[in-house]
Design a protein around this nucleic acid. Structure first.
Length: 545
DNA sequence: GCGATCAGTT
DNA sequence: CACAACTGATCGC
């Protein structure tokens, strides 16, 4: 789940995927896709009032997202304020402070994100650098090279910050089978079943969220049928999807959901209650799409798992795997990474380790370019702090209003307690617990803490160095988080650097000592096939239907 | 009564 | 095996 607070350091007058609290004051809004956890505050009364009294504030999203959003009447008040944008066509947006008239120009480009219909990333280009907000995404290795607008000539654009969908940025999720592999597995299962007789039907036990549509279209295409769903309303303007779904229950593939009678399935009934016309009992199997992940060393695993006499789980992921994210980051080489999802409990340990590991590798790359081979505490600090100074206005001439913004009377742009800035404060502690869930990769537990920011934003910045301290051990494993997700062996890559070395490194960083970070600089190769979008499974996402 | 929020469930 | 939504309880207006 996204815990992104809504705003980016570089362009703090716009809000993305969050519409409550401080975001109420933004000059422009961006919605990456139509999932509820990215729409917090979107139907708020205060926001509605603000829109009605504003002449310039708009919501920018893809055409598909606009359709999906407006298919829910609760969001229909947005209709006059939505500006749908085409994919991959840079658009200049004026960010206007309506009280002072102060204005800032920002170039935004929507890039297909492969997460669900209409999902996009936002590439912002302005005076504070290029920033990529990924929203939620699934990219395969090499996908960056296919995106023209992330390139300038033959090289990747300089990216100051990536606001990253870090859902699976954890080496336990090293590998998730590709969309195509998962789709083939599901197709085979479906085909083998419904081919037996007309009374053999499958129920795709999908969650009530957008993102399964490419499964429907591919199965519909392959078996020359339509998939039974509860409503077609949201797809009325999306013929590519609409032609593969139906509300006619007489079909062999169902993805219908009814909140009340889902239990009926236990009695071999479909959620929609459909039965055969001649009274013959239907032979039903259920297939539940779920994310399956594998360690680095597991090369081949079935993407279909039988979980009962007539129930199956099928591999399906909306998000990039760890290795896919690694490819993504090493292709982009951003200066900063801001995770949108920060796992709690044990997962945090992996997260920090890998996040820091990545950062150090990249520092080393920067420093190599500048003919330095050592990295000092100071340079790390400066790096982490640099964003704060960049937050000062540099795009427009200072006006009374903008200088006021920097003063102590200003609304606290990032001073909220909820602002979780994970690039600033790190704390490491030794776990006193020997949980059975802890794998053997690291004996210690790292706990990530959002920085406590003072109300004064002026000059207390010297305290915001990345801190690494050993605190009292505390296991963050809660009951709900300590479930059975450790069947997957830890991956070799997760051992770099080993715990002792890492702790040492942290200690050195904390004490200001110089540390060498000469470990394998990432190679920076880019292939430039300028093909536009990839396979058929991507078509839904890449077209503004 | 509505909506926001949280914990628990699927 | 998972990441998004639903349900029900609780609280505030």
């Amino acid at each position: 789940m996204s815990s992104f607070a809504g705003r980016m350091k570089e362009y703090p007058t716009v809000s993305l995927d969050r519409f409550d609290r401080e975001n109420l004051h933004s000059r422009a809004y961006f919605l990456s896709h139509c999932h509820k956890d990215h729409m917090k505050g979107l139907k708020g009364l205060l926001l509605k009032r603000k829109l009605q009294s504003s002449r310039t504030v708009r919501l920018y999203c893809s055409f598909v997202t606009k359709e999906l959003l407006l298919s829910n009447p609760k969001y229909s008040f947005w209709e006059p304020y939505i500006v749908p944008l085409e994919l991959e066509s840079p658009t200049q947006i004026s960010l206007v402070d309506e009280t002072s008239g102060e204005k800032e120009e920002l170039l935004v480009t929507l890039l297909p994100a492969g997460h669900c219909p209409g999902s996009v990333m936002f590439l912002f280009e302005g005076c504070r650098g290029n920033v990529l907000y990924t929203g939620d995404f699934r990219f395969a290795a090499g996908d960056i090279s296919r995106i023209e607008h992330l390139h300038s000539g033959s090289r990747v654009k300089d990216i100051q910050s990536v606001y990253l969908d870090s859902t699976f940025y954890d080496p336990r999720f090293y590998q998730i089978p590709t969309r195509e592999v998962c789709l083939n597995g599901i197709s085979e299962l479906v085909g083998n079943w419904i081919g037996q007789s007309s009374h053999h039907v499958v129920w795709l036990n999908c969650k009530a969220a957008y993102g399964y549509e490419y499964l429907f279209t591919n199965l519909g295409e392959q078996f020359n049928t339509q998939i039974h769903v509860r409503s077609l309303a949201m797809f009325q303007k999306m013929p590519e999807i609409l032609s593969y779904v139906t509300t006619d229950r007489r079909t062999q593939i169902h993805a219908c959901r009814y909140p009340t009678n889902e239990e009926f399935l236990h009695g071999s009934r479909l959620p929609c209650g459909s039965t055969a016309a001649d009274g013959t009992p239907l032979r039903i199997i259920s297939i539940k799409p779920s994310t399956m992940w594998f360690g680095e060393r597991i090369k081949k695993t079935d993407v279909i798992i039988k979980t009962g006499a007539s129930s199956f789980r099928a591999c399906f992921s909306f998000h990039s795997s760890y290795s896919e994210i690694k490819h993504f980051l090493s292709d982009l080489q951003p200066v900063n990474i801001f995770p949108s999802v920060v796992p709690i409990g044990q997962t945090v340990r992996y997260f920090i380790k890998n996040y820091l590991n990545y950062s150090l590798i990249y520092f080393s790359l920067i420093l190599t370019k500048t003919r330095k081979i050592k990295i000092s505490h100071k340079s790390v600090t400066e790096h982490f702090n640099s964003l704060n100074s960049q937050s000062q206005s540099c795009c427009s001439a200072p006006s009374p209003a903008s200088s006021k913004m920097a003063g102590s009377q200003s609304p606290d742009l990032f001073g909220d307690d909820d602002d979780e800035d994970f690039s600033l404060t790190l704390s490491a502690s030794l776990s006193t617990h020997s949980s059975q869930n802890l794998d053997s990769c690291l004996p210690d537990t790292l706990i990530l803490q959002p920085e406590q920011r003072g109300r004064d934003r002026g000059d207390s910045r010297t305290n915001s160095a990345p801190r690494v301290s050993e605190g009292s051990g505390q296991s963050e494993l809660s009951g709900s988080q300590s479930s059975s997700d450790f069947d997957v062996p830890c991956t070799p890559e997760s051992k770099a650097p080993p715990p002792a070395e890492l702790s040492q490194l942290y200690r050195k960083l904390a004490s200001g000592e110089e540390v060498g970070v000469g470990r394998g600089s990432p190679t920076h190769t880019h292939t430039h096939t300028r093909t536009h979008m990839h396979t058929h499974t991507h078509t839904i996402y890449s077209n503004a239907l």
